[in-house]
Amino acid sequence: MRVSIAILAMALGATGAYSGEDASLTLEDGQSLTIRTDAPPHTENLSEITSGWVYRSDETQALQLDDFDNPAFVFVDQGIDLYAAVDGSEGKACASCHENVEDFAGLRASMPKVVDGELVTMENLVNNCRTERMGAEPWKWSGGQMTAMTALIGLQSRGMPVNVAIDGDAAPFWEAGKELYYTRVGQLDMACSNCHEDNYGNMIRADHLSQGQINGFPTYRLKNAKLNSSHGRFKGCMSNIRATPFAEGGDEFKALELYLASRGNGLSVETPSVRN
C-alpha cells in the first residue's frame, strides 16, 4: 500500500509535453475517429471516455494518422498473406470460405461476445476456424500470426463505434470482469481502477496514464516494435504491480476484456493503434 502511494505521488506532475489532449484523430484519407465521447451509463465513475491515443506524445500520435507511417501495417500486410495461405489437413485458407476479409466489417466492434453461452474473443473465433474447419494447429494467443490476423480483421471495423453487449447472456461475464477491474492485487495492492480510473491524465514516472481503453487493439508498441494483444497488455500491467498475471486467453482476461471493451462503448475502433 505504501509503495503504491509512493509511485503515484511521483506521478502527479506536469503534462506539458503533451499537447495531444485537445487533438483530433483524422486519418490521412479524411476519416475522423471518435477519441472522446460521453461515458456509457454503465461506466458510473467516468463522465467522459477517451482513447489512449489522446495521452500519447505528438510524435507517437502522428504515427497513427497515416497508414503508411503506422508500423502496424507491416503486420497487417503479413495478415493479408496469412489470410490467403493454405494451412492444415483440409487444404484450405481463410479466403477459401471467407472470400472477402471486408465482410468482417463490424465484427471487431462487437467483440468479445457470447456464443452458445460461452464468452469468445476474436482469437477464439480465428482459432476455432483453424482447428475445427481447417485441420490446422491453433495460433498462439499473442503470437505474430494471431496478432497479424486480428489486426487485419479488426481494421475492417476501424471508425465504427465500439458496441459490445453487456446484458442477457453476457451479464455474468461482464459482472466478473468488473469485479476483477476493481479488485486490488499484487504486492503493490492496486486495482486497474487505481491507475486507469482514478489517475488517468497524470504522469506515472515518465508515462502518461490513459483510461486503459482497448478500442485500438491489437496495438503496435514502440517499446517492442510489434503488435500486442489486449491480454498481453493486461499481463504487463499486472506484472508491474507485482501480481501474478492470469493466463492469456483464460476466463479472467476474457471477462476483463469484455468489461474494458464496454467502458469504451462509443469510441471508434482504432485497430491497429500505435502506443509507446
Binding site: I204, R205, A206, D207
Partner: peptide, 8 residues
C-alpha cells in the same frame, strides 16, 4: 528519452 514507468 523517457523510460516508461509501468504499463507492461
Amino acid at each position: 528519452v523517457t523510460i516508461g514507468g509501468c504499463g507492461g
